[in-house]
């Protein structure tokens, strides 16, 4: 469950995101839509604790993440959330399977064990990349890399998935495959999904759509020539 209360966030005097009241229920699949620059990525980063709101509170499963220290937030993020970004951001020097298990190697609260490698292999098998686990991201197609990113986001079995346009650069076939993987995971783990998308074709597959343009304000600061 995600709750936002009286959120105010601004980058500069030109952009502001204001959310007075927003709840996303457990297991809900929510599509975040809106025009470019309306703050969709900012919204995902706020939910993940990567950015802190100027004011207001954000609750993840009842925990007020705005009161957490930076370190605690990192620990919380790695345990509770799975993140995928618009650009795949896999590490080019790690093999596919090492990219999937990377979150477990990075944070001491998740102890990496041999079983995690098996789990990563299972995940890769489930997305059709079982035979490419030893390859490097540079040898994969865009769709394959995004599938690896999705596997990485769920290796810690998080209850909340925060995805920023994971299907933006994919063709319809790959997009549908990725969505199926994500939805399957949400169903089997009762996970909450918050996904930014521009793709109107897939919005209907979600439980709910939030148009973020209703919450954000962009002030045109162009030179007044009159």
């Amino acid at each position: 469950m995600i709750s936002c209360r009286d959120i105010r966030f601004s980058y500069s005097a030109e952009f502001s995101l204001e959310i007075d009241h927003l709840d996303i229920g457990k297991g809900q699949r929510v599509a975040i839509t809106g025009p470019s620059g309306c703050g969709k990525t900012t919204f995902i980063k706020l939910m993940a604790g990567i950015l802190r709101p100027d004011t207001g509170k954000i609750f993840l499963d009842g925990l007020d993440i705005t009161s957490y220290s930076h370190t605690d937030l990192q620990d919380l993020r790695i345990v509770k959330t799975g993140l995928v970004f618009q650009e795949f951001e896999l590490l080019d020097y790690l093999s596919v399977i090492d990219n999937v298990t990377l979150p477990l190697r990075l944070n001491p609260i998740l102890k990496y064990e041999r079983k995690h490698s098996s789990r990563a292999q299972e995940l890769l098998n489930s997305v059709g990349l079982g035979n490419k686990s030893k390859r490097y991201p540079g040898h994969l197609s865009q769709g394959e890399r995004q599938r690896v990113a999705v596997c990485r986001s769920v290796i810690t079995s998080p209850g909340i998935l925060l995805y920023d346009e994971p299907t933006a650069n994919l063709d319809a076939k790959n997009r549908d495959a990725i969505l199926k993987i994500i939805f399957d995971y949400c169903q089997t783990h009762s996970a909450t999904l918050v996904m930014v998308t521009h793709d109107r074709e897939i919005v209907s597959a979600f439980d709910r759509q939030i148009d973020l343009s209703k919450y954000s304000f962009t002030i045109n600061s162009g030179t007044d020539e009159s």
Partner: peptide
Amino acid sequence: KKEIQTLRYIGAAKGR
């Protein structure tokens, strides 16, 4: 920079 950002996003502490 981007790689380091990714590491931080997915849970790596600054020290790590």
